[in-house]
Design a binder for these strands. Structure first.
Length: 593
RNA sequence: CGGGGUGUACCUCAGUGGUAGAGGGGAAGCUUUGGGAGCUUCCAGUCGCGGGUUCGAAUCCCGUCACCCCGACCA
């Protein structure tokens, strides 16, 4: 790929902007970090003036930030357009009726995620958190024949979600910039093909953005019911835990991940079930102290949850091996309920008749639904709670002492687990979810009665896919991944400017002239230059340059009269004195690297 | 929604019942000019808001709001 091809890849705009002299622009940085910013990306963006908080999770994107967002958007648009997707723009304001059609109004209101209110004439509307309803409605009656398929439509727009706990700056906002795309196909196979195309589009986008990322298998959550993958920017500060295996290449969100469950050790001899006093032994750890010879794998804990459906709720008891944990997402999916939360102390006492810590499968209240994680299978001679304070049963056998409850894969993968194929070992790392792709199937097209005529003239529901990218979150993730003590380190393709020229002395004729010459020469090649011509001390200029993280720095200083300048990449290089005539070549080399 | 924390100048913060403070920042001037330089002068606050106690409240009490953190929740 030539330099000029690369330059075309992330144009910021189609017109020639004026000289970008800092002295003439609104460029305001702070010496001190905001006290309320916990994560690096947030603190640096505020300090560098990229964003300003207006309320929890609501921000102004300043001029430099906006340039970054537009660059990401440009990459997103180019890759979508190249794959045959078409851009459109849907309304943020949406009527309740549309959401009633898909049946999501109730759930989103119950989850308190939806901004909704009455308009002046008493009609209920919401601010769109996502656009399946609108796009499905748009397509309805517009795509009427299989001959028009497949289609993929996308938009880049501000989304609104009333997050109960917005946090970490742009990482989780209540208002944020998102790209959402929706595919329409005639069949499940077609949908899978569209999905596969989008997977490549996403890989290309994040590769071009210059972030390190991992695609992982994901839980589809409330939005879909089939295959789904997330694109995670690798970062220790990420909110998501992901299970990866270096040997097999397996990668999945821990919400979804599965692992091979080790075989439980066999008891030495079969003994009749018996009840034992276990004073104050509420946890497996406490029990180990009492029964040092009993391995954790043969202690089955029983955890009580309250599951909620639209019209009811129920206490659910879940058995699980002592060395494993329950994954509540999997539990929620197995129950097909809206929410699952740990039962409170009062409930536990009511259904077990015992203090918290002694729940077991035998003698639970009748209205409790008993389930088990797959890890209990084949466990013999186990310990479990006695449903009586300070009491456990020992040497319990499924089949002999009680029926094995309905069993599902409900476990949480743990670091060190073997992969399902037994070929490798799982490690838990963290990431920031910047993209998520789903196969929706006919969920929305059926619910909203959105159909096309097939080859036989029969009406069929569309097979849909939906594909999201958090644009503003991607920018934050890039900083989370690229920063040092001095400030941000932008990847070249999404940096607000490519080159920072520091003119050491404002008003110095030789410096002014050389800086102008370099500026004009670079801009003529489509290279974006931020020119620090401010009348201030050198220290401040260097600090600011490090802070805003422009990838390349050219210092025009005392040797300007000799056409000598200093060259330094923001990271990974030392200061070099070079001829001003070599600057363009250096910049081009950086683009070609 | 549970738990914890913080609200004082544009920013970062000090100030435990008696006149509202510092540093940064901004303005003016002089001196400086290669990693936030120095000196002088100036600018800047309804101490989140409401109520109460008190001769007197930034400070004590009650309420309320906002923001941050942990958890729950989260296309």
């Amino acid at each position: 790929m030539t330099f000029h091809d690369r330059m075309r890849m992330t144009p910021l705009c189609g017109y020639d902007p004026a000289d970008m002299k800092i002295s003439k622009s609104l460029f305001v940085t702070k010496k001190e970090e905001p006290a309320d910013a916990e994560v690096r990306s947030h603190a640096l963006m505020v300090r560098a003036g990229f964003i300003q908080q207006i309320a929890a999770g609501i921000y102004v994107y300043g001029p430099l930030m906006w340039r970054v967002l537009r660059k990401i958007e440009t990459i997103v648009r180019e890759e979508h357009d190249r794959a045959g997707c078409q851009e459109l723009l849907m309304p943020a304001l949406q009527p309740r009726e549309l959401w009633e059609e898909s049946g999501r109004w109730e759930r989103y209101v119950a989850d308190k995620i939806l901004y909704h209110f009455e308009d002046g004439r008493g009609r209920e509307v919401c601010l769109g958190p996502t656009h399946e309803e609108v796009i499905t409605n748009f397509v309805k009656g517009r795509i009427t024949s299989y001959k028009q398929l497949p289609q993929n439509l996308y938009q880049i727009q501000t989304k609104f979600r009333d997050e109960t706990r917005p946090r970490f700056g742009l990482m989780r906002g209540r208002e944020f910039v998102m790209k959402d795309a929706y595919s329409f196909d005639a069949s499940a196979e077609g949908m899978a093909a569209s999905y596969a195309v989008m997977r490549d589009v996403y890989r290309n986008i994040f590769t071009r953005c210059g972030v390190r990322f991992t695609p992982v298998e994901a839980d589809a959550g409330a939005i879909g019911d089939a295959a789904s993958e997330e694109f995670m920017v690798d970062a220790d500060t990420g909110e998501d835990a992901i299970a990866v295996c270096r040997t097999t290449g397996y990668a999945a969100n821990t919400e979804k991940a599965v692992s091979k469950i080790s075989a439980p050790p066999e008891p030495e001899a079969e003994v009749a079930m018996h009840k034992e006093p276990t004073p104050a032994a509420k946890s497996c750890e406490d029990l180990r102290a009492l029964f040092p010879d009993l391995p954790l794998e043969r202690m089955l804990k029983t955890i009580l949850y309250r599951a909620t459906w639209l019209d009811r709720d129920q206490v659910v008891a879940v058995m699980c091996r002592g060395d494993r944990e329950i994954n509540t997402i999997k539990l929620q999916n197995a129950l097909d309920c809206l929410a699952v939360e740990l039962a409170d102390e009062k409930t536990v006492k009511a259904v077990t008749g015992a203090a918290v810590g002694f729940a077991g499968p035998i003698g639970l209240a009748d209205d409790v639904r008993l389930m088990a994680d797959a890890s209990v299978e084949g466990v013999k001679g186990f310990l479990c709670g006695g449903n009586e304070t300070d009491t456990h049963y020992l040497d319990v056998y499924f089949g002999r002492d009680l029926e094995q409850p309905e069993t599902h894969e409900l476990g949480l993968v743990q670091s060190g687990d073997a992969t399902v194929d037994g070929e490798g070992t799982i490690e838990i790392t963290r990431g920031i979810e910047v993209g998520h792709i789903f196969q929706l199937g006919t969920k929305y097209s059926e619910a909203m009665d959105c159909r096309f005529a097939d080859e036989n003239g029969k009406l069929q529901p569309f097979h849909m896919g939906c594909y999201g990218i958090g644009v503003s979150r991607t920018a934050a993730a890039a900083i989370e991944q690229g920063h040092d003590d001095g400030g941000m380190i932008w990847p070249l393709p999404i940096a607000p400017y490519h080159v920072m020229i520091i003119q050491m002395r404002a008003g110095d004729e030789a410096q002014e002239g050389l800086a102008q010459e370099l500026h004009d020469q670079l801009e003529a090649q489509g290279i974006e230059v931020l020119w620090d011509d401010r009348k201030m001390g050198a220290g401040g200029k260097f600090k600011d340059a490090d802070l805003v993280g422009i990838p390349m720095r050219v210092v025009v200083g005392r040797d300007a009269a000799d056409r000598k300048v200093e060259w330094k990449p923001r990271t990974g290089g030392e200061v070099e004195v070079i001829s001003a005539d070599d600057v363009l070549a250096r910049v081009q080399a950086a683009f070609d690297a």
